[in-house]
Write a protein that binds this DNA or RNA. Structure first.
Lengths: 231, 231
DNA sequence: TAGTGGTCTAGACCACGCG
DNA sequence: GCGTGGTCTAGACCACTAC
């Protein structure tokens, strides 16, 4: 059992309330139970800490935190479909076009000028109610083909599973601002209501930028979760 | 040179543009240069990745990202004073009282009922302009004494340096909502303008909760930054 | 294929909490 | 003082990029 498998195993045990005293077994016990070395136990444990599932106290033990399953967990958000596996996610494509990168786009994507870029807008629903509006740009040299079907399910899963690419990380800038009349209409809100915005720049594992998005979340429905390490 | 010192050293070199090709030396070179083992080099590097200073590409190298020094870096925000060392941070105490924990407060703090709790409100200025309003609660059994002077500088620094306590981590829930008339007046905004909210629960390294806050940021001035690991 | 970062082993010793 | 997690060493081998 490698680190990834062990992480998954522990995540499942935690979310199914297997550890009723809200404390994990000690490192030594996990090493023994799964027949792995301390390195793997600690790596898997670190993954759980990073997503806010548990916290560690030196000399004492590893404690399970309350679940934050209704929030978007910033440190590893993989898209709505993956973030909320138990809920109904639907997407409606509002606009799709291809544009050649001008200077500004080329700079954002760190690509050559006139590289083709997909521009698209999606309205996303969670449990049947409008949840977010997504204004996305994809480098077409990396993602050569997109269609309505892919866009209305999960672009990230398509990139990973069908294109076989490895997504690396995303830079996220979070802010709040007033929404306009059109956005309000789409989300079932009023003009000038608050909007929760995330500007994403998404990198493949090889360092190239394949996606830049602005996502506007319905302020009545979306909350974000993060853990800050202050040691 | 231990991991902490090496991390600091590399952070300083990065922020002073020492690495002009925007790439760090290889792990082997850093091991040699600082006379440390690979373990420490990789730990220090990981710290830089976590705060979004650099990103790593297997087989290629370690690349420096654009600085996000004007955003609050969520993964290690230590309070405004520490987050913006080059800018002027001022705080005005609006309210300070002590209250015994009722059932609800006791549950939040995981403390006994009737534990004394400090309640305080601060208006915080960045470079002379109103930046945020902070509604904070501190467990008085852990932080036995607070006064105007401490509150108007940095409570976190007081906790660390004067009380000698080690802060562990903070859970953060981020949302957006309308602000009320009083909040608008304090921040120089209009009633029902958007507000960027963070609800913090802050733990000591020993696992006890010493601080719970709601912070309302001026939506025209504050942005948050985070890196999501998607591998 | 050379050079880079990623995973992993098998240990040792340290720092902290808790009884 | 014992048991817990934290730091660290000195290696080995793997996976990926870039040429």
């Amino acid at each position: 059992m490698n680190t990834k498998e062990l992480t998954k195993e522990l995540m499942e045990k935690i979310s199914s309330n297997y550890y009723k005293d809200m404390k994990l077994p000690t490192e030594d016990m996990l090493m023994e139970e799964y027949g792995v070395t301390r390195y793997r136990v600690r790596k898997a444990i670190q993954n759980l800490v990073d997503i806010g599932s548990i916290y560690l106290v030196q000399g004492s033990g590893m404690y399970i935190k309350e679940s934050h399953k209704d929030s978007i967990i910033l440190s590893n958000t993989q898209g709505l479909v993956t973030d909320f596996p138990e809920r109904k996610v639907e997407s409606k494509l509002l606009n799709l076009e291809i544009q050649e990168a001008d200077n500004s786009l080329a700079q954002e994507f760190k690509c050559k000028k006139s590289t083709p870029i997909y521009l698209l807008t999606r309205l996303r629903y969670l449990d049947g109610e409008p949840f977010s509006i997504e204004y996305s740009k994809y480098n077409k040299e990396i993602i050569p083909y997109l269609n309505k079907e892919i866009i209305e399910s999960s672009v990230f899963n398509y990139v990973r599973e069908d294109l076989g690419l490895t997504i690396g990380f995303a830079d996220k800038v979070i802010s709040s601002n007033k929404i306009n009349k059109e956005q309000a209409h789409l989300l079932g809100l009023e003009e000038n209501d608050p909007g929760l915005f995330i500007n994403d720049t998404v990198y493949l594992a090889n360092g190239s930028i394949f996606n830049i998005s602005m996502v506007l979340y319905n302020y009545k429905r979306a909350t974000l979760f993060d853990v800050a390490n202050l040691k």
